[in-house]
Amino acid sequence: MLVLVVGPSGAGKDTLLDGARAALAGDGAFIFPRREITRPAEAGGEDHLPVDEVQFDAREASGGYALTWRAHGLAYGIPADIADDLALGRTVVVNVSRAVLDEARTRFGALRVLVVTADPEILARRLAQRGRESAEDITQRLARAEAFAVEGDDVVMVRNEGTPEEGVARFLAALER
């Protein structure tokens, strides 16, 4: 099954994904592919595969990605080889933009969407703490979070407002449903 992880900036998606990846290490039934992003490796944030715009465009044109999107001045791609893992019956867990959910549902059929969320005050505090966005950027990200409603029978909400350990436990429970 394909599991798409979405949620607003500051919800803690990377923290929960890292925790789940560690908890499920050695369990070949769960795959956590790294995204390719047009962002330098040293820019911080998630462990991703850095590519430049030319590389990204070439891979996208040649079918090298299962899903792509652009946000915040960057391009993001999920490697196409996730199809091999899905064909082998593995659960593939990827962090994606809410903007690609409809495309993913069309292309992959049955999937699960884990929406990681937290109260707006918590999101604002986390965004400020990571120090990558200006106050105006944080306001825009919070407004964007309010504008996107994720709905469907395949949606599972994961509130991440406590400790990282509590969030990871909720995330793992949602994965194993």
Results as ranks from 00 to 15, higher is better:
153 D>T: 13
151 E>K: 12
133 E>D: 13
115 V>P: 00
103 E>K: 11
99 A>H: 10
99 A>F: 12
108 F>C: 04
104 A>Y: 06
128 A>R: 13
143 A>Y: 08
119 D>W: 06
129 Q>W: 06
100 V>T: 13
123 L>K: 12
117 T>A: 11
125 R>Q: 10
108 F>W: 10
148 F>W: 12
99 A>G: 07
106 T>V: 14
126 R>E: 10
150 V>H: 01
116 V>I: 05
97 S>P: 08
131 G>P: 14
106 T>D: 12
106 T>Q: 13
124 A>K: 07
136 E>N: 14
167 G>H: 02
124 A>H: 09
130 R>H: 11
149 A>V: 07
107 R>Q: 14
124 A>V: 13
114 L>E: 00
110 A>H: 07
163 T>G: 03
112 R>A: 14
161 E>Y: 05
99 A>W: 04
129 Q>F: 04
150 V>K: 00
144 R>Y: 05
130 R>Q: 10
164 P>Q: 08
157 M>A: 07
135 A>T: 14
141 R>Y: 05
153 D>S: 09
103 E>G: 08
164 P>K: 07
111 L>M: 13
99 A>I: 12
165 E>Y: 04
111 L>H: 06
103 E>Y: 03
164 P>H: 07
160 N>Q: 11
151 E>S: 12
138 I>N: 08
166 E>W: 03
121 E>M: 04
149 A>G: 14
101 L>I: 12
123 L>E: 15
128 A>K: 11
141 R>H: 08
135 A>H: 14
133 E>C: 04
101 L>N: 00
140 Q>H: 15
122 I>H: 03
150 V>E: 05
97 S>Q: 08
148 F>Q: 14
157 M>I: 11
153 D>I: 02
150 V>W: 01
165 E>M: 11
150 V>G: 00
109 G>P: 04
156 V>T: 14
131 G>L: 11
96 V>S: 01
100 V>P: 04
96 V>Q: 02
102 D>N: 10
152 G>Y: 03
100 V>W: 06
120 P>N: 07
110 A>C: 04
150 V>A: 04
106 T>F: 01
158 V>A: 02
110 A>Y: 09
139 T>C: 06
109 G>D: 08
134 S>R: 13
139 T>E: 15
115 V>R: 01
162 G>S: 08
147 A>R: 15
98 R>S: 05
111 L>E: 07
98 R>D: 00
154 D>F: 02
127 L>W: 11
97 S>C: 11
100 V>H: 09
101 L>T: 00
119 D>P: 15
137 D>Y: 05
131 G>K: 05
136 E>I: 04
167 G>L: 04
130 R>P: 11
155 V>A: 01
124 A>M: 09
116 V>A: 10
152 G>W: 06
156 V>E: 06
166 E>R: 07
114 L>D: 00
119 D>K: 14
140 Q>L: 15
144 R>E: 13
144 R>C: 12
96 V>E: 01
125 R>D: 09
113 V>Q: 00
139 T>F: 04
158 V>G: 01
148 F>D: 15
117 T>S: 15
121 E>W: 05
143 A>E: 14
167 G>Y: 01
164 P>I: 12
165 E>G: 09
108 F>E: 04
132 R>G: 02
102 D>V: 11
107 R>K: 14
155 V>C: 01
128 A>P: 06
162 G>R: 08
162 G>P: 05
